[in-house]
Design a protein around this nucleic acid. Structure first.
Lengths: 140, 140
DNA sequence: CTGACTGCAAACGTTTTGCACGGTA
DNA sequence: TACCGTGCAAAACGTTTGCAGTCAG
């Protein structure tokens, strides 16, 4: 596992440090985290960690196109490892974020035809109630 | 025109002030503006305008569900008057933002089935090169 | 006339920066 | 060893707040 993360960091031309390993590990484990959440989680294992270090590393990793920011309506941004482009679904109540893969080529085609833009990227967020929060609402 | 804006503000329970009229007018004229852009544009007509006033009004208008924030990848947020929910297309080069209406019910249905979420809102951003910027790139 | 809005300045939270030290390659 | 990353503290930045004066209703 450690070796795995080490290799990923090297692939992206990022020097391997314990702090960076932790950041990647947490992102792999949780998928999407805010700066704050990252800082808190890593501080546990690593009490000397500085917030500035988290920021510097997040920025470094974004420059290398290794992670990216997910801007979420009404909430703080989260960060995720970059993989194939996908949409997100957010629970408006509990704030959990999940990846979803959808087939967007028809819509992209439709928009390209309609607007004459050449579409390169998408940032698609769907939001509502997750099944758990929906259950709670019913109960109440 | 002034009377028109006056009435809209009243509908949303917002007291009518010259500063607010300007904000609405600029948003109607340009569609999407950052806080900075709003401040600069209005300052021209209205040199005494305070940035704090812009912020306070933007927040007041968001509370009344009269305008909303559009979070854009790699750029500052813009604000727009609320109308029927729609997607946005952004030029990654010049930053222009345009509204697009797409039929999303199939996709929403697909995601609801797949995830068991009840989807309430969407924030869909497509990005790429606008026709003008595409032309420039070719020329170069 | 009353409460809400404005402008200013101060406060606040978040993010960035500079620097001395320590660790990676 | 040379350079990059870290941690700390200070600075910068965007946004919010408090207050006194003004304006809309």
């Amino acid at each position: 596992m450690n070796e795995y993360i080490t290799n990923i960091l090297k692939e992206y031309d990022l020097k391997v440090t314990p702090q960076r390993m932790c950041i990647v590990e947490e992102l792999m484990k949780h998928g999407h985290l805010t700066i704050e959440e990252l800082f808190e989680k890593i501080s546990n294992k690593f009490p000397s960690l500085s917030l500035a270090t988290v920021y510097k590393n997040i920025n470094a990793m974004m420059e290398k196109n290794f992670i990216k920011e997910v801007k979420i309506p009404n909430r703080k941004s989260k960060y995720e490892l970059i993989k194939e482009e996908h949409a997100h679904i957010i629970c408006e109540k509990c704030g959990r974020v999940e990846d979803i893969n959808i087939d967007k080529k028809d819509i992209v085609k439709e928009i390209e035809d309609k607007t004459s833009y050449k579409i390169e990227h998408t940032a698609l967020i769907f939001s509502g109630l997750c099944p758990e929060c929906a259950k709670e609402s019913e109960a109440a």
